[in-house]
């Protein structure tokens, strides 16, 4: 089961502190491959906390780990991942004449990875 959703790369304290440890370190890799998903959405998609999901768009695809967020904290249809390599893998290099690539509000398809 897959669905189109909006992905917002975001900052988190964990990402910030992990950054200081080093981008090639595990803490950073781990934090930047967590995706926040609305728990109602998770239920609909049959997802459990910690499940791997595939996010894909025209640019690329990544596999990240599900982290449930209460519906009050994160609206339905919205995904959040701390900035890092997975989010850039989905980023188009088109900058609309601004120098700024598409870095927020990326349309992605989310689907559960069946192990």
């Amino acid at each position: 089961m897959s669905e189109k959703m909006i992905l917002i790369p975001v900052r988190t304290t964990e990402q910030g502190t992990a950054l200081n440890k080093g981008k090639l370190q595990e803490a950073y890799m781990l934090e930047t491959s967590m995706v926040d998903v609305n728990t109602d959405d998770m239920e609909r998609l049959g997802l459990q906390e910690g499940d791997k999901v595939r996010l894909s768009n025209e640019v690329g695809e990544v596999i990240v780990t599900c982290r449930g967020k209460k519906p009050d904290d994160l609206p339905q249809g919205l995904l959040a991942i701390p900035y890092g390599p997975p989010t850039t893998h989905l980023m188009d290099s088109e900058t609309y004449g601004s120098g700024m690539p598409v870095s927020k509000h990326m349309e992605v398809v989310i689907e559960k990875v069946i192990v």
Partner: peptide, 12 residues
Amino acid sequence: SDPASNFPKAAV
């Protein structure tokens, strides 16, 4: 800076 980790794929 570390553009290889935060630039779009085509740039990298």
